[in-house]
Amino acid sequence: SAVVMEEGSPGEVPVLVEPPGLEDVEAALGMDRRTDAYSRSSSVSSQEEKSLHAEELVGRGIPIERVVSSEGGRPSVDLSFQPSQPLSKSSSSPELQTLQDILGDPGDKADVGRLSPEVKARSQSGTLDGESAAWSASGEDSRGQPEGPLPSSSPRSPSGLRPRGYTISDSAPSRRGKRVERDALKSRATASNAEKVPGINPSFVFLQLYHSPFFGDESNKPILLPNESQSFERSVQLLDQIPSYDTHKIAVLYVGEGQSNSELAILSNEHGSYRYTEFLTGLGRLIELKDCQPDKVYLGGLDVCGEDGQFTYCWHDDIMQAVFHIATLMPTKDVDKHRCDKKRHLGNDFVSIVYNDSGEDFKLGTIKGQFNFVHVIVTPLDYECNLVSLQCRKDMEGLVDTSVAKIVSDRNLPFVARQMALHANMASQVHHSRSNPTDIYPSKWIARLRHIKRLRQRICEEAAYSNPSLPLVHPPSHSKAPAQTPAEPTPGYEVGQRKRLISSVEDFTEFV
């Protein structure tokens, strides 16, 4: 048969007729292969192709491409040299491709048809291009793949890379869960390890502090508590009631339409708007009261037996805890006409967050109470924005700035309102402590230090009264110190430094 060459192609190359033996071998191979691939376009007849790359030819070592076609129900084999250009295909004639002069020997084609199974398996396991790669995943090629499931790999992101949580363990979102698992493993320790309690022994800490320079003076030496005195035992138990972190309780009120001037209507609300609910979820963490331990979680007086509701929101960081007394989460009882059960919590909070959804101005004093010092007013606006402002009593104007209003988005509203309420509550605590000038409020841990110092002074006084020969370590507060001759004046800087060093040991009130 003659071949018409394309323009620009090399000279004529004689194409030899395939021997009958080659056709029989390739026909047997075509019957084993699956003929249901995917359909081509209507211009080209339905056909199945599979590209198999052999590394070497037997005796020649030339890479070839073998295409199996099922045109007219008769499979045909096409061998081509890759750099050459194939002729145009037609549905009426068999596929013809040019070969190099080196394939002119018909014996070479017979060798190609009689490829060993080793070469076929190696060509099938190679990388296939384009559409033949999808075909190689079918059941027909499963014989050339190794048996057994593939090893499982770690989760992959859409980009093909490992997620960040699997790369950096410290930033993994499941870090707290692993800590819980470690605690569970520790709890399952053997009885021999049960006595080993991690941490620092208080006796060891005391020993280090006792021999430090801070205890060089007799006034700073630790003293032993009497065991037989019940009054001192009660004082030590009272110390446990003062937490070592700051605590805040903040009221949250929802004002519906037409309720801006009605205290009873505001306290009777059992739910609010959708934006109000989203605002609550951002204030803190939802907790169930019956599962809380009052000595570990500050509840601000809420009952854990269901008297004040089942849930509330709280927030904490390293040095403070805040609980929100939310009116809509507290039960509304029919027998309580004046809502006294709610007001006994909300009316005693220094700061209230008022979500004013009424469309009218909310005035300070609508919720009557002796300790309502500051109101954080949240007014929802259009386009997911809110107006946040402050209202306070006249005696609080020096501590709280009420002249600045803020426009905040719904997303950042819980954070801004919480921070403003916490700052206002700190100012309210300082303002409330002014009624007792001898006990200015600095912080909870300073209050613990003052309680310890008062307890020490009482013990020293009782020891001096029981044994008059012992001198008083600290003179009583009601006694007057003996007159001392004025010492020589020293520079102001040295006096300030000495006073600062003494105050650092005794108390921190002056620095606050």
Rank of each mutant, 00 (worst) to 15 (best):
E461W: 14
G284W: 05
Y465P: 07
D361G: 06
A405W: 15
L253A: 02
D382C: 04
V236N: 07
L283C: 00
P243E: 14
D401C: 05
D439I: 08
R339E: 11
S435K: 11
G301V: 04
A487H: 12
K337L: 14
Q419K: 01
P294C: 10
P222Q: 09
V335H: 10
P294E: 12
G282A: 03
L280N: 00
W445T: 12
E510A: 10
S435Y: 11
D246Y: 05
Y383H: 05
I326T: 05
I242R: 07
P226K: 09
S443K: 08
P380D: 00
M330S: 06
G282H: 04
T312F: 05
Y254W: 00
S433R: 06
L501S: 13
I446D: 14
P489H: 11
Y355T: 01
N348V: 05
E307Y: 11
R234K: 12
D361N: 08
S273T: 04
K499N: 13
I367N: 03
G309H: 13
S466W: 11
G398Q: 11
Q370H: 13
I319L: 15
A463T: 14
F373S: 11
G300A: 13
K249Q: 14
P437H: 07
L364T: 15
K290Y: 07
V378T: 02
I250W: 00
M426W: 03
P414A: 13
N436G: 06
Y254F: 04
A265R: 05
S219F: 06
K480H: 14
L501Y: 09
L455M: 15
Y383L: 06
W445P: 07
Y274P: 10
H432E: 09
H431G: 04
G306F: 07
K394W: 12
A463C: 14
R454V: 13
K363C: 11
N425M: 03
Y383V: 04
S231D: 15
L283Q: 00
E218M: 10
H451D: 14
G256P: 03
L422F: 08
T366S: 06
L455A: 09
L289Y: 14
D336T: 11
D361Y: 06
V236M: 14
Q237D: 11
S479K: 08
R339H: 15
D357A: 03
L387T: 04
R234Y: 11
N269C: 02
S389P: 01
A322L: 13
P476G: 15
R275N: 00
T402W: 04
L238N: 09
T277F: 15
K444C: 06
L455P: 07
Q237W: 06
Y465M: 15
L253Q: 01
R234D: 15
L329I: 04
D217V: 13
R434W: 08
P491H: 11
K337G: 15
S504V: 07
I353R: 00
N220C: 15
D334R: 15
V388Y: 00
E307F: 11
Q419T: 09
